[in-house]
Amino acid sequence: MNIRSFAIAAAALLAASAAVAAPAMTGQSAKGPVLTDAKGMTLYTFDKDAGGMSNCVDACAQNWPPLMAASGAMAEGDYSVIKRADGSMQWAYKGKPLYLWSKDSKPGDTTGDGFKDIWHVAKP
């Protein structure tokens, strides 16, 4: 391999490693397609969130863990990153912050859908 070919291969490898996977995937549930985290757990939205801000903090965030974004995560497509009140970063889909539900026990569970009429599965 000559130096030019090596440089091109190294650049391609670097670009591939820098590529960020989407923060959520589409999974199947009894309610049809839903957004899931990397482990296949259903993601939810909260009606009390507004303007790209999370209103689920403290005890709420213990029951509804936010889908956290890594430092330096960047918006892509319908996904954006919002700053939480504590300064941490959270993924949002079409402007709505995303959460897990602590009572879901396996991929495909949707036990949080409709909780208190303010929590809903996140649909792709």
Rank of each mutant, 00 (worst) to 15 (best):
M1C: 08
I3R: 03
I3P: 00
F6P: 00
F6I: 08
A7L: 11
I8Q: 00
A9G: 05
A9E: 01
A9M: 04
A10K: 00
A12E: 04
A12V: 04
L13E: 06
L13T: 13
L14F: 14
A16S: 12
S17V: 13
S17H: 05
A18N: 07
A19Q: 12
V20R: 12
V20M: 14
A21Y: 03
A22H: 02
M25R: 10
M25Q: 15
Q28L: 09
S29R: 00
K31W: 00
P33H: 00
V34G: 04
L35S: 03
D37G: 08
D37I: 01
A38S: 15
K39V: 11
K39Q: 15
G40C: 10
L43K: 02
Y44G: 12
T45L: 04
F46V: 06
F46M: 07
F46C: 10
D47H: 04
K48S: 10
D49K: 00
D49I: 01
G51A: 09
G51F: 07
G52S: 02
M53F: 06
N55A: 15
N55H: 09
C56I: 08
V57Q: 09
V57C: 07
D58A: 15
A59H: 09
A61E: 13
A61H: 05
Q62D: 14
W64M: 07
W64G: 14
W64T: 12
P66F: 03
L67I: 09
M68H: 12
M68S: 15
A69L: 10
A70Y: 07
S71E: 15
S71I: 02
S71V: 08
S71D: 15
M74G: 11
A75G: 10
A75H: 07
A75W: 10
D78M: 05
Y79N: 02
S80W: 01
S80P: 07
V81R: 03
I82S: 09
K83H: 02
K83M: 13
A85F: 13
A85S: 14
G87W: 12
G87Q: 13
S88H: 09
S88K: 12
M89F: 13
Q90R: 02
A92D: 13
K94E: 06
K94Q: 06
K94I: 02
G95L: 01
K96L: 11
K96N: 11
K96H: 11
P97G: 09
P97Q: 04
P97W: 04
L98C: 05
Y99G: 09
S102P: 01
D104I: 03
S105R: 10
K106T: 13
G108C: 10
D109Q: 07
D109R: 06
T111P: 05
G112T: 08
G112R: 03
D113Y: 03
D113G: 06
D113R: 02
F115Y: 13
F115D: 11
K116R: 08
K116N: 14
D117N: 13
D117L: 05
W119C: 07
H120Y: 05
A122I: 01
P124E: 08
